[in-house]
Design a binder for these strands. Structure first.
Length: 271
DNA sequence: CGAGCAACCTGCATGC
DNA sequence: TGCATGCAGGTTGCTC
C-alpha cells in the first residue's frame, strides 16, 4: 500500500543489493498485473547488469546494461531481497534473480502493480512521460503551484493528488498535508492565496520527507524474510481517525468522500 | 475543465 | 462457522 515514502524507502533498501549485480534469471509466476508483464522482460533483461536504481513518482527504475525495468507497487505491492532458495508464497509474482544468490521478490496480492521493460529512456515511457513535478525537488515551488491552480475550481485535495501536477501525494499524505497547512480539503484550488500555497507546499515536502526519514530508520534490513520491508509505523494526525479528537484542538475529526476516496479532516483547524 | 463512476483484484474487519 | 457487505495506501479511462 505504498505511497511515495514507501517507494523511496524500498528503493534505498534494495539499491545496495542490486547495483553491479548480473541478472541471472527472471521468474514470472503470474504476468497478469495491472498490465500484463511483457515476455520480452525475461528474454532481454536476463544476463544484463544492473547499473542503478532510481525513482520517478511512485515508479522504481532499475537501469540495466540492456534496458530499464520499471516497477509500480500499486496498492498492495512490496519488494524484498531474499535468498533465492526461499520458496515463493501465494502472491509472489516475480523474482529477479541475481549473481549474488539473492533475488528481488515482488509480492502483490491485489495485482494493481505493474512491471514494464523498455530499451528506451524510461522517462519517455507512456506511463511516465506526462508526470508532474517531484514534490521533494526544488523545482516544485509555491509560486509554480499557485500559477497552475489559477482559475481551477477543483477541490484542493484532488488538485494536489493529480499526478499531472505533482506526483507522489497519495491519499494519506494529501490528508495529512492539508491538515498541517490548515486548509479545508474542499477548498477550490484556484482560490488559495499565495501565502496559503506557501504553507501547503511546505507541508507536503515536510510530511513526505519526514515519512521517508522514518522509513529509513525503521527499515534496517531489507534482506530478512520476516517482517514487512517497505512498511513502517506512521504517525498520522487525521488519516483514519474520524470520530476521534483532533490532536491540535480536540474537535471531533470528520470523514467525507471526495472522488471515491476517503478524506479525513478537522473542521475547526482547516478552513 | 472537472465531477462522477466503473474497472482492475484480494484480504480483512464487521455484522448477522 | 459461514456468508454478505464494505472498505483499503493507486491509476486509467469513460461519460456527462
Amino acid at each position: 500500500m505504498p505511497e511515495l515514502p514507501e517507494v523511496e524507502t524500498s528503493r534505498r533498501g534494495i539499491e545496495p543489493h542490486l547495483c553491479n549485480q548480473k541478472i541471472t534469471a527472471i521468474i514470472v509466476r503470474n504476468r497478469q498485473l495491472r498490465w500484463p508483464i511483457s515476455v520480452r522482460l525475461q528474454k532481454e533483461a536476463t544476463a544484463s547488469t544492473i547499473n542503478a536504481v532510481r525513482r520517478r513518482a511512485k515508479y522504481l527504475l532499475i537501469d540495466t546494461s540492456q534496458g530499464c525495468i520499471i516497477i509500480h507497487l500499486g496498492m498492495s505491492g512490496s519488494l524484498r531481497m531474499i535468498d533465492n532458495k526461499v520458496p515463493a508464497e501465494k502472491h509472489d509474482h516475480v523474482d529477479i534473480v541475481l549473481s549474488s544468490g539473492q533475488a528481488l521478490r515482488l509480492r502483490d496480492p491485489r495485482r494493481f502493480g505493474a512491471v514494464f521493460w523498455t530499451k528506451n529512456d524510461p522517462l519517455k515511457h507512456l506511463r511516465l512521460k506526462d508526470l508532474g513535478k517531484e514534490p521533494l525537488e526544488d523545482a516544485l515551488t509555491a509560486e509554480w503551484l499557485y500559477g497552475q491552480s489559477r482559475n481551477r475550481k477543483r477541490a484542493i485535495k484532488s488538485f494536489i493528488m493529480d499526478s499531472k501536477i505533482v506526483v507522489g501525494v497519495g491519499n494519506i499524505y494529501a490528508c495529512e498535508s492539508l491538515f498541517l497547512a490548515g486548509i479545508h480539503p474542499n477548498k477550490p484550488a484556484g482560490k488559495l492565496s499565495m501565502q496559503r500555497w506557501e504553507k501547503l507546499t511546505h507541508a507536503i515536502k515536510d510530511v513526505l520527507s519526514k515519512a521517508i526519514k522514518q522509513g529509513g530508520t525503521t527499515l534496517k534490513d531489507f534482506t530478512r524474510s520476516d517482517g514487512q520491508p517497505g512498511y513502517f509505523a506512521r504517525q498520522l494526525t487525521v488519516y483514519g481517525r474520524e470520530g476521534k479528537p483532533c490532536k491540535k484542538c480536540g474537535e471531533t475529526l470528520k470523514k467525507i468522500t471526495q472522488g471515491q476516496r476517503s478524506t479525513f479532516y478537522c473542521s475547526q483547524c482547516q478552513k
